[in-house]
Simulated scan of single mutants.
Amino acid sequence: MSIKPIIALDADGVLLDYGLAYASVWERAFGQRPVERDKDAYFPYHRWAVEFLEGERLATLQACMDEQFWSCVPPLEHAVDACHRLHDAGYELVCVSALAPQFETARLRNLRETGFPIERVIATGLAAGERSPKADAIEQLGPVVFVDDFLPYFRGIAPGVHRALICRGPNGTPNVGPELDQIHSSHADLWAFSEWMRTQILNVR
């Protein structure tokens, strides 16, 4: 067990720009890069001028979301610097991602190669039901803070863990409703969170 306090970080939308990567994988699947429609959209299929996929075309896109894809998602602006700031402040950073477990190594390689000071990834996969697929991993890690950009992923997180929500992509965001009352702090991006952490003393136990 780490002797440093742990900050658990989501990947896509917190560390990595999945929305930008979506345009690249679309181009790889269908041979044409989509035009950006709404840079402030939360979901990538709203950000880009693409059609709703099903059947064979959906399978074609998903087939391109392979080891290569998950190894090459670009970092969000200032996210690497934010992580170094947190790391230098004495925190161990662990990525907890709702990614299929078979891509856990690819995700770690992606983070290392883009300069994140992160040596551990936990890929939880998706789970049916209301409880967050990340809840069990967070319980086992015992972090002081859990940072995510998807409000439903805070369901079932232990009360003693500080819940920090990254509020990106206001258009079509799922981060609305009464569950926001369970969030301890909200931030525009990870850099803003790291700036906030400099001035906070968290009651973690």
Rank of each mutant, 00 (worst) to 15 (best):
I157C: 05
A135T: 02
A29V: 06
N171S: 05
H84E: 04
P34N: 10
V121F: 02
W26T: 03
W70M: 02
A29E: 11
E104M: 13
L126K: 12
L190K: 04
V121D: 13
P178V: 14
D88T: 10
T199D: 08
D10Q: 07
E92H: 13
A8S: 15
S97N: 08
G13R: 11
E36H: 12
A21S: 13
G129C: 05
H84M: 06
L202A: 11
H87P: 09
Q140W: 04
P152E: 10
G31H: 10
Q102G: 06
F30G: 10
A106Q: 07
F69I: 01
V50T: 13
L151R: 14
A63N: 02
S24L: 08
R47S: 05
H87V: 01
S97R: 13
Q182H: 14
L202K: 03
P174L: 03
L9T: 00
H46V: 03
P5A: 01
P75D: 09
L20C: 07
A128Y: 04
F150K: 01
Y42A: 03
P152G: 11
A63V: 04
A100R: 10
K39T: 05
P5E: 03
W70S: 01
I201A: 13
Q68A: 12
K4L: 09
L61M: 10
G90A: 09
P75K: 15
W196V: 04
C72T: 12
E130V: 12
D66N: 15
Q32E: 09
V96A: 07
A127M: 02
L15H: 10
A63E: 15
G31I: 13
H187S: 05
L58R: 15
L93I: 12
V35P: 00
I201Q: 13
A8T: 00
V96Y: 14
S194Q: 07
Y45G: 00
Y18E: 06
L126N: 14
G19R: 12
W26Y: 15
E36T: 04
D148S: 04
W70I: 02
D189M: 10
Q68F: 02
F69M: 05
P159E: 13
G156S: 07
H87L: 00
P133I: 14
E27M: 04
S186R: 15
V144R: 08
S132R: 03
R85F: 06
D17C: 02
E113G: 02
E130P: 09
E54V: 07
H187M: 09
G177A: 06
C83N: 09
Q140G: 02
E56F: 03
H78V: 02
A11R: 04
F193R: 01
G125L: 01
V204P: 01
D149N: 12
I7N: 00
L20H: 11
F43N: 05
P5Y: 02
F146P: 00
V176N: 03
L141F: 03
F69C: 05
L99T: 14
A59C: 05
R112K: 12
N203P: 08
G156Q: 10
G13C: 07
L15F: 10
R155D: 11
E27H: 06
L93Y: 14
S97D: 04
H78C: 04
I122N: 00
